[in-house]
Simulated assay, not measured.
Amino acid sequence: MTVKTASKIGFQHVGSFLRPNVLKQARKDFADKTITQADLTAVENEAIKDLVNKEVEVGLDYATDGEFRRSYWHLDFFWGFDGIEHIHYGEGYHFAHEETRDDTAILSGKIKFNPNHPFLDHFAYLKSLTDNLDIHPKQTIPAPSQLYIELIRGTNDSKIKEFYPNVNDLYHDIEKAYHDAILAFYNEGARVIQLDDCSWGLFLDDNFLATPDGKAYAESGIQDILLELNNKSIENLPADLTINTHVCRGNYHSDFAFSGGYGPVADTLFAKENVDTYFLEYDSKRAGNFEPLAKVSGDKKVVLGLLTSKSGELEDRQEIINRIKEAAQYLPLDRLWLSTQCGFASTEEGNVLTEKQEWDKLKLVKSIQDEVWD
């Protein structure tokens, strides 16, 4: 096939990479107070420099820092806002087979963007590495909707009433804090920002929806709230800034949180969210069929996450190509692209595979891209 993709997506990895052992040890030493923050930062810098060189070697058009400075894909970013506090909830997130650590983010005041948010320096370092290489920097952050879901999680919700008697003020502050953060990344040179978003998974899983919490979510009209939070946060941005989103069903130590196809959210998420590109998980039968892709509106693109990041076993090449052809029945091939379904280490624990296997996965993605699109 010689179909050209109409997108400017390029070869992208979703975001995170397995943390190298030297970085894991440094983080442990820092937690044990046997090294300083400066020592840890030096180790992080070297690990990220090595990672970016590997990203260039595998042919990626966009580099991430692997989320090497984070413990979680989402919470570390939330903790960087004013008005957000890091506490231990007493209970982790419940995945299909495991429970995570128990960190969370709750309100400690009114939410504001912090101009000294540490992620800005993190991005600046990544950009400094890519400036002299044939690769562009990409910034991944959790979606505004994900912050809202965290703030209303169980007993966290009590803090909302304390600081936001009018919940509309909370929505406004989340939207403004995110809008300000995105513009700050832009001013540092970011031109591709990805909003990682597990919040929509709540509406896909029949088992969850059968629970009291699930029924409450389904009947609350919360999809419209999540949509508005995301859209308001990304409106009136510079024309040369690309906003993508990655819709995830959970990715922790090779485990998942939710199952189910995209049908229940397609009319909202696919038709109305004003992003440029959706990175979607399609690596297993849990993701359902491709029919909901017909709801993707306008000229928005979809990156099919057909290769799993949860296992090192390589997929059958022809099966992946056949599935791309199947998806093209619902969205034209020139609006489709390919990636792994998620990152390799959404938390510092990482998925159950080796560093060699993660790079072999990306090499397979690239070779299939080269065959299906040129």
Rank of each mutant, 00 (worst) to 15 (best):
M1K: 10
V3I: 15
V3W: 03
K4Y: 09
I9Y: 07
I9G: 00
F11Q: 07
P20M: 11
K24D: 03
K24L: 14
I35S: 01
A38D: 15
A38T: 13
D39A: 07
E44V: 09
N45A: 10
E55F: 00
V56S: 05
T64V: 06
D65T: 09
D65I: 07
R70S: 05
R70D: 13
R70T: 08
S71V: 14
Y72S: 15
F77S: 08
G83I: 01
Y89I: 06
E91F: 08
F95I: 13
E99K: 15
E99W: 06
E99Y: 05
T100H: 01
S108T: 05
K112G: 03
K112C: 07
F113K: 00
L120M: 07
F123R: 04
A124L: 06
L126V: 10
S128C: 01
T130N: 03
D131Q: 07
D131W: 05
I141Q: 08
Q146H: 12
Y148D: 13
E150Q: 15
I152C: 03
G154F: 11
D157W: 13
D157F: 14
I160C: 00
E162G: 01
Y164A: 06
N166A: 10
N166W: 04
D169G: 10
A177D: 09
D180E: 13
F185R: 09
Y186A: 06
N187K: 14
I193Y: 00
Q194S: 06
L195Q: 03
D196C: 11
D197T: 04
C198D: 10
G201T: 01
G201N: 09
D206M: 05
D206C: 06
A210K: 12
D213K: 05
A216R: 15
Y217E: 05
E219T: 14
S220N: 10
D224M: 11
D224G: 14
D224I: 02
D224W: 08
K232D: 13
K232H: 07
D240V: 09
L241P: 09
I243R: 06
N244C: 00
V247R: 06
C248S: 11
Y252M: 04
H253D: 11
S254I: 11
D255R: 09
F256N: 08
A257K: 10
T268R: 03
T268K: 12
L269E: 03
F270M: 11
E273I: 08
F279Q: 11
E281K: 12
D283E: 02
D283M: 07
R286S: 02
N289S: 15
P292M: 07
A294N: 02
A294Q: 10
K295A: 10
K295P: 02
V296A: 02
L304H: 06
L307Q: 13
S309C: 05
K310V: 12
S311P: 00
R317T: 15
Q318V: 15
I320S: 02
I321C: 01
I321P: 01
N322C: 00
Q329R: 14
L336G: 00
T340W: 08
A345Y: 04
S346T: 12
E348I: 15
E349V: 14
G350V: 12
G350I: 13
N351R: 05
V352N: 08
V352M: 03
V352S: 04
V352I: 15
E355F: 12
E355G: 04
K356G: 01
K356I: 09
Q357Y: 02
Q357K: 13
Q357N: 07
K361S: 10
D370V: 10
D374K: 08
